[in-house]
């Protein structure tokens, strides 16, 4: 499913003294099949944006009580908001939002804190019972087994255990299984690796790639870690002050080091190293993944003859 947003604007508690603009006209298109990264500081609007993708937050016109405001004379109408996920029009209140939610899976930060059931099986099956009440017991069992297996857990060993007795890493995997069990086409994750140790982080990123290959067509993840973005994404969007400042491939994006720094954002280590080497007259043109960077450096090195 293709995701398309135009002029997306959102205000928290619009009629109170604490009214804050979280989004001020976001334009962003994410194609089907992408492994898309979202970058930005806390408060940049990135979380507000991703919560729109499965209608946890709604555009005003999609609210049940919405009545279009009458314009005064001479007033120009606000720009038309467009928000589409596949064929679902998220600005229309007649859209089946529940069905949409089964198609767009959402993994929140620290998802292990949403576990609640007596055993792992029940917890993972929760989404199926809500979205697909027509499924038979056998079908549910098979779906839960598939979901737990793909996140790297042993179904037979873990299904009857209490989710609260598991280790931190296992809990997070169970929580992810509980979201992907409905086979969403788009999977959105808010800082999936937060709070994990380096090895745990590496494993979670590997899991996301596996899910992208075998399970969900599109993966969108929010991250603060620029190395994580450069190593993994097809494209990434930079959010700042409620708007999308840049959308590009990591390769093009991280060439804008100065502009990113102005937004208070960092660049991956490989980009910093590239800049240092450029000052020394060594020009390396890589896509900023560690592997490609090292290859390009070695290639540069080998292209020179040994000095006698």
């Amino acid at each position: 499913m293709r995701i398309q947003a135009e002029n997306l604007t959102f205000t928290y508690s619009p009629s109170s003294p604490f009214a804050t603009y979280a989004l001020k006209g976001v334009f962003l298109t994410i194609e089907e099949g992408e492994f898309f990264g979202i970058i930005g500081h806390t408060g940049s609007g990135k979380s507000t944006f991703v919560q729109h993708l499965n209608a946890l937050l709604k555009v005003p016109s999609a609210e049940k009580k919405y009545k279009p405001k009458k314009l005064k004379k001479g007033e120009t109408p606000p720009p038309q908001i467009v928000l589409k996920v596949g064929d679902y029009d998220l600005t229309d209140k007649k859209t089946d939002f529940k069905e949409l939610r089964s198609k767009v899976g959402m993994v929140f930060q620290y998802p292990e804190y949403q576990l609640f059931a007596e055993n792992v099986f029940e917890d993972v099956a929760f989404g199926l019972k809500n979205f697909r009440p027509e499924m038979t017991k056998e079908e549910v069992e098979r779906a839960v087994e598939d979901a737990l297996t793909i996140v790297g857990l042993d179904y037979a060993e873990i299904k009857d255990r209490s989710p609260f007795d598991l280790s931190g890493g296992q809990k997070r995997r169970v929580a992810i299984a509980g979201v992907i069990v409905t086979k969403p086409e788009v999977l959105v994750l808010d800082e999936p690796a937060a709070g994990l140790d380096p090895l745990g982080k590496k494993e979670i990123m590997e899991l996301l790639h596996k899910l992208h290959r075998e399970w969900c067509k599109t993966v969108i993840f929010v991250s603060h870690d620029m190395d994580e973005i450069s190593e993994n994404c097809t494209r990434a969007a930079v959010f700042s002050e409620g708007q999308v400042k840049f959308v590009d491939t990591p390769k093009n994006l991280f060439q804008r080091e100065d502009e990113l720094r102005q937004l208070g954002l960092d660049v991956p280590l490989t980009a910093k190293l590239t800049a240092l080497l450029r000052e020394k007259g060594i020009v390396i043109d890589s896509d900023y993944t560690q592997r490609d960077f090292c290859e390009k450096v070695l290639q540069y090195y080998r292209e020179r003859e040994e000095q006698v």
Binding site: L273, L276, L277, I282, L298, Y301, Q307
Partner: peptide, 26 residues
């Protein structure tokens, strides 16, 4: 990959190491 860079943890030092390695060749 065959480059003779010393193990280091500093970005600046690594850049210097790479430069030295490369400048030994023409």
């Amino acid at each position: 990959g065959g480059m003779d860079v010393q193990a280091t943890v500093s970005l600046e030092e690594l850049a210097k190491e790479i430069e030295e390695c490369v400048s030994k060749r023409k």
